[in-house]
């Protein structure tokens, strides 16, 4: 059975208008992209697909995604003037609309971020009511809601690696909500996307990072 709604779904959330899917959800996609990138990018190229492509100005989705990249929450009244704040924060941005990407969800956004040679591509969808899903990170498919702390781990494809990582998480008495593994054949690395129900200890995170076969660990907080 579907999870019961909260009274604060009926009277709430507190958000910046006009639309939960086209404004609040889009802020959360931008914020998730910033968290995954690890910092504010210098340049962001943003593509709005399908239904978003024509309506992104009217609903303020353009300001919303920039606000997210600046680290603002969905109820932050700076969203309205996010372009001015981006200028102050030296965030350069460009928008593009693509009308008929049939394989994508109607409300899809792609964000390409750059900073000093570092690049990252994040594809997200706004599912309605402010709910989102991050569907791709640098071409690796995933399905992250942003409602839970999330670990993104890139590791060598060695035997027992997944069991080892999950046992580190279990030792912190943290439950795993969802986990997906995505391998690339060419260099034998695997990417793990793990949604957990609370944050793991900083020392555990540091331990995972120090493992010889682990290339990268990103700890993504809840996307508010």
């Amino acid at each position: 059975m579907a999870e019961r709604s909260s009274i604060f779904d009926m009277i709430g959330p507190v958000m910046i208008g006009p639309s939960s899917s086209h404004t609040a959800g889009v802020v959360r996609i931008g914020l998730a992209a910033r968290y995954i990138f690890g910092e504010q990018p210098d340049v962001a190229n943003i593509t709005f697909y399908n239904s978003f492509a024509t309506t992104y100005e009217g609903h303020g989705s353009d300001r919303a995604v920039i606000a997210g990249l600046l680290g603002y929450a969905t109820d932050d009244d700076r969203i309205k003037n996010a372009f001015d704040h981006a200028k102050e924060a030296h965030l350069e941005f460009h928008f593009k609309g693509v009308g008929n990407a049939g394989i994508y969800h109607p409300n899809t956004i792609k964000i390409n971020m750059e900073k000093q040679g570092k690049t990252l591509e994040v594809l997200g969808i706004s599912r309605g009511g402010g709910l989102i899903a991050i569907r791709e990170i640098d071409g690796f498919s995933c399905n992250l809601s942003g409602q839970y702390p999330t670990l993104i781990i890139e590791a060598g494809d060695v035997k027992g690696s997944i069991a080892f990582i999950t046992s580190v998480i279990a030792n912190d008495s943290v439950n795993i909500g969802t986990m997906s593994v995505n391998r690339t054949a060419k260099n034998g690395t695997a990417r793990l996307f793990i949604e957990i129900d609370s944050e793991i200890k900083p020392i555990s995170l540091e331990y995972l990072k120090q493992l010889s076969w682990v290339h990268e660990v990103k700890a993504i907080p809840v996307v508010t």
């Binding site: 009926m10 910046i16 208008g17 639309s19």
Partner: peptide
Amino acid sequence: EVNSCMGRIVAAPTAGASGIM
């Protein structure tokens, strides 16, 4: 109108109906 003009509101139950309550 605050909702339509990118101001802060309570979705009650939705943003489109945020003036009624």
